[in-house]
Amino acid sequence: MTTTADLPATTTTSSRPRRAPLTRLLRSELRMVLRRPRTLIGLGLLGLVPVVIGIGIAIATSSSDGQPIGEGIAALVAGNGLLLPIFALVVALNMLLPLTGAMLAADALAGEASHGTLRGLLMAPVGRARLLAVKAFGVATVSLIAVTLMAVTGIITGTALLGGDGMLTSSGTSLSFVDGLGRVGLTVLLVTIQIWALAAIALAVSAYTEHPLIVVVVALGLVIVSGVLSVIPALDWLQPALITTSWESVADVIQDPLSWDPLVNGVLRAACYLVIGYSIALARTLTRDG
């Protein structure tokens, strides 16, 4: 082996796996996801949602002669700007945010597999479990960014366009501006966790296919089927297990005092879906042919 001794450090055959630093991988992943045009367009559109809703409510309020402009939260948003981000997030949680989460998960594994870039990472090598962790981190972080972005544009639009002093809760009490911000933060947290749960399922699907569209279709199919099942009275027993059940309870954050039970339940439910999604995704990633 005289010849190989001339080579640089590469020849030292250590029996310990050598790995690229994890933070470097995470940063590189994030940089890539945030450079993807689809991600940027998605984030931009999501950021616009609260602005559009805010403008709509401002127009509706000025022409409604004091009549409520909608039901539930919508009725409370007029002149209650700090509620706009929460309202926008609750609205977006029905379809737009799950779509975003599914899209991110679809691009993370299926999309990279179709571009052949997953192979490059596997050969680097990034260990398979690590690869999934990096991907999960990317999806989770960008989901959080999307939700936070909506909250921020919502807060700005709300206070600028709808005004209001602090936050009026659905229970009829008024919260200070800081407490109101706390509620917005709580909403961001709860919504993000729900998106993480859906994205985990989507990531499991993503590990099985090379077609990102299939992932999005399956994930949204899950959302729609859950929605349908939840309104069938004969399947009441199933309701607490459905992923969409928690989504409805997110709106409870505007109650005062907060009732934590449904919120905590929602988080636990999401955690169950997270565990299921990621374990299936991990199993598939470990055995998948690259």
Binding site: A9, R18, R24, S28, L121, A124, P125
Partner: peptide
């Protein structure tokens, strides 16, 4: 991006 994943490359 691939260089970031290379174990043998110092940052």
């Amino acid at each position: 991006r691939f260089a970031a994943a290379e174990p043998l490359l110092a940052t």
